[in-house]
C-alpha cells in the first residue's frame, strides 16, 4: 500500500519534470535542425512559471472547470499506466482528459477555439481506434490487457514485443504524433498556425489556465513515450533507447513535414494504420 502511494506521488512529481525537460530538449533540437541556437533547456519551465504568475483572465467559468478535469485525468491516466493497470481502461481515461479539453474549448463562443475543438475531436477519432487495436494486439500476444502482465510476459519470454508486433508498433508511433501535437498532425492546437486558427483549442485560455493545459500535456507526452517503451519492456536500457529513437523521429518528422488536412489525417491513420495493424495480427494468426 505504502509502495503504491509512493509510486503515485513519484509519478505526479516527476512526470511534469520529465515532460518539461523533454519539451526543452525538443525546442533545442528543433532549433538546431533549423540552424538556430534555440532557447535554454529550462525554457518550458520559465514559460510555465510566467504563465502561472500572470493575471487570471477568463471567457466563462466553464472553461476553468474543464481545464481542471483535463489535468486531473491526464495525471490519472499516467498513474494508472505506471501502476500497470488495464490498457483499455487507460485509453478510456485518457479520453476523459482529451474530452474535457474539447468541451472546454467548445464552451466558449470563440470561432477559433470551436474550430480547434472540432479538429481535436477528429484527431481523437484518428488515434483512438488505433490505440485500442494496439491494446488488442498486445492482448493477442500476451493474453492480457493488464500492462503489468504484458511486461511480465516479455520478461519471461525474453523477447521484446517490438519483434513480434513491428507493424503495430509502427502504426502506433504514427498516431502518437497526433497526441504529441507534432506536424503533420498539429491541426488543433497549432503551434505554428496562428494565421489560420490562432491557437485553436487553447485560444481562449490564458495565464494560469493555459499553464494547467501545458502541464496536462506534459503528462500526456510522458504517457505516450511510456506506451512506446512497452514494446521493449524486458530491458530498461533498450526501452530508453527505443523511446529516445522514437522521440527523435517525431522531431524529425515535425520539422520536415507540413501540416496536413484532417481528411488526410483520418484517411491515412484509418486505412494505412488499420491495414498495417490487421496485417500484423493476421500474420500472428498464421505463424
Amino acid at each position: 500500500m505504502m509502495e503504491v502511494v509512493l509510486i503515485i506521488l513519484g509519478t505526479i512529481l516527476l512526470a511534469p519534470l520529465a515532460g518539461g525537460l523533454l519539451t526543452g530538449v525538443d525546442r533545442i533540437i528543433t532549433a538546431r535542425m533549423q540552424g538556430r541556437q534555440g532557447p535554454p533547456l529550462l525554457q518550458p519551465f520559465y514559460d510555465l512559471i510566467k504563465l502561472w504568475r500572470k493575471e487570471a483572465q477568463i471567457t466563462n467559468t466553464l472553461q476553468v472547470f474543464y481545464a481542471v478535469i483535463y489535468l486531473v485525468f491526464a495525471v490519472l491516466s499516467l498513474v494508472l499506466f505506471v501502476l500497470g493497470q488495464n490498457l483499455l481502461l487507460i485509453i478510456f481515461v485518457l479520453t476523459i482528459g482529451s474530452g474535457a479539453m474539447v468541451l472546454g474549448a467548445l464552451s466558449t463562443p470563440s470561432p477559433y477555439s470551436q474550430i480547434g475543438a472540432n479538429r481535436e475531436i477528429l484527431q481523437m477519432l484518428a488515434y483512438d481506434p488505433i490505440l485500442l487495436i494496439t491494446a488488442v494486439a498486445l492482448y493477442l500476444v500476451t493474453g492480457s490487457f493488464k500492462l503489468s502482465e504484458v511486461v511480465a510476459y516479455q520478461t519471461a519470454s525474453g523477447q521484446p514485443l517490438l519483434f513480434v508486433l513491428p507493424l503495430v508498433f509502427l502504426t502506433m508511433t504514427y498516431v502518437l504524433t497526433i497526441k504529441m501535437r507534432k506536424s503533420p498532425f498539429d491541426i488543433s492546437a497549432s503551434h505554428h498556425a496562428h494565421q489560420e486558427i490562432v491557437r485553436g483549442i487553447t485560444t481562449e485560455y490564458s495565464g494560469p489556465y493555459l499553464a494547467l493545459l501545458e502541464i496536462a500535456h506534459w503528462f500526456e507526452v510522458v504517457l505516450v513515450l511510456g506506451l512506446v517503451a512497452i514494446f521493449w519492456a524486458n530491458s530498461w536500457l533498450m526501452a530508453l533507447i527505443l523511446v529516445g529513437a522514437v522521440f527523435l523521429l517525431e522531431l524529425l518528422l515535425d520539422n520536415i513535414t507540413a501540416r496536413l488536412t484532417y481528411r488526410w489525417m483520418l484517411q491515412s491513420t484509418w486505412v494505412v494504420g488499420m491495414g498495417l495493424a490487421v496485417l500484423n495480427i493476421a500474420y500472428l494468426y498464421l505463424a
Partner: peptide, 19 residues
C-alpha cells in the same frame, strides 16, 4: 529567422493576445 533567432531569449511569436 536563424540569423537573429529571438527564441534564444525565450521569445515566441504566439499570435494570440490572450497568451
Amino acid at each position: 529567422t536563424p540569423v537573429y533567432d529571438v527564441e534564444r531569449f525565450g521569445v515566441v511569436n504566439i499570435g494570440n493576445p490572450k497568451h
